[in-house]
């Protein structure tokens, strides 16, 4: 059985070399230490309660050896680890850049031509790709096990990582920095495709000529509304969208409000303004500035359609 995930990036080979060296030197030192210990346990078993033992207080040479040899090995490992890490942090200039914005609980990818995707990253094989990371709310971490890369997405900061995929296929994308309720659901797929397929992907423009409801539905998925608001009536983190439009709802802190266009609009732009009773505060990101007028309208149309 293979215990390592597939290596599918240019880092894989070097990384696995360091890994194997550390692994085998660890196994050898554990065998020496634990093996010696177990051997002594049997070899020097107590015979009588009056056993005399050797009076050995120390041995400077032996102690020097088992501090100096580990020191050299550890420093060697650190230096090698640094060499590989340096490659990971030396950014190629000709890379394809993709902006990735993390939010509770979704990954939003934006390509240079404005194409956006949620939860799915499409990259060409054999070409360096730089991921520019940031976060809308809390710290997340972008992790592709098969590429051996990981970097935190921090609000108010822009961090980056790069990789070059070596095989086509679909790979897991995980969030590895705890980010609240749906942390374990903040998954994505990295799709590595041939250059020609990638060019075709970039040429598509799915946003052209779609109905507002259809656009709203896409946004509902892309902006991760789907993580908290269902369309089947089941309340999750936030109220379900089913039948919500036009209904009168109770507000936290007293009072009711009719869920009309204005209320929905306000709730998208500034969610904290009026929280529906029974739901937690501070869970939804603020979309002020993140969506344009058309998009908000489309979302409202979509919510209207959820009868």
């Amino acid at each position: 059985m293979k215990y390592m995930p597939l290596q599918a990036s240019t880092f894989g080979e070097d990384w696995d070399l360091v890994w194997n060296f550390v692994l085998w030197s660890s196994i050898i030192s554990c065998i020496i230490l634990i093996g010696g210990m177990i051997y002594f346990i049997f070899r020097y078993q107590r015979k009588t309660d009056k056993d005399k033992t050797a009076y050995i207080t120390h041995n400077t040479f032996a102690e020097f050896l088992w501090s100096f040899i580990p020191l050299v090995v550890f420093m060697g490992i650190a230096a090698w680890g640094w060499e590989v890490y340096k490659d990971m942090r030396t950014f190629p200039t000709d890379a394809l850049e993709v902006n990735v914005t993390a939010q509770k609980w979704a990954w939003n990818m934006t390509y240079s031509n404005g194409r956006t995707l949620t939860g799915k990253l499409v990259v060409p094989v054999g070409k360096p790709v730089t991921i520019l990371l940031t976060s809308k709310d809390v710290i997340h971490s972008f992790f592709i096990p098969s590429f051996r890369v990981k970097q935190d997405a921090v609000p108010g900061r822009r961090s980056k990582l790069w990789f070059q995929a070596t095989r086509e296929g679909n790979y897991h994308l995980f969030c590895t920095e705890y980010c609240g309720m749906n942390h374990s659901g903040m998954l994505g797929t990295v799709s590595v495709v041939a250059q020609a397929d990638f060019d075709a992907f970039m040429a598509e423009n799915p946003n052209a000529e779609v109905s507002p409801i259809e656009l709203g539905k896409q946004l509902y998925q892309q902006q991760a509304c789907i993580g908290c608001h269902t369309t089947d009536g089941k309340p999750l983190v936030g109220p379900s969208f089913q039948g919500i439009f036009g209904k009168s709802v109770k507000i936290k802190g007293g009072g009711t409000v009719t869920a009309d266009e204005n209320y929905i609009r306000e709730s998208i732009l500034n969610p904290a303004a009026k929280i529906v009773e029974g739901f937690p505060e501070n869970q939804m990101p603020v979309y002020q500035g993140a969506l344009n007028e058309d998009q908000i309208t489309a979302l409202i149309e979509f919510i209207k359609a959820q009868k």
Binding site: F74, I77, W80, Y85, S141
Partner: peptide, 17 residues
């Protein structure tokens, strides 16, 4: 010894968290 894995920069990138 697994601490040594995690102290190694490039290995930790993969194993962190």
């Amino acid at each position: 010894v697994t601490g040594i894995f995690l102290a190694t920069l490039s290995i930790d990138v993969h194993l962190h968290d």
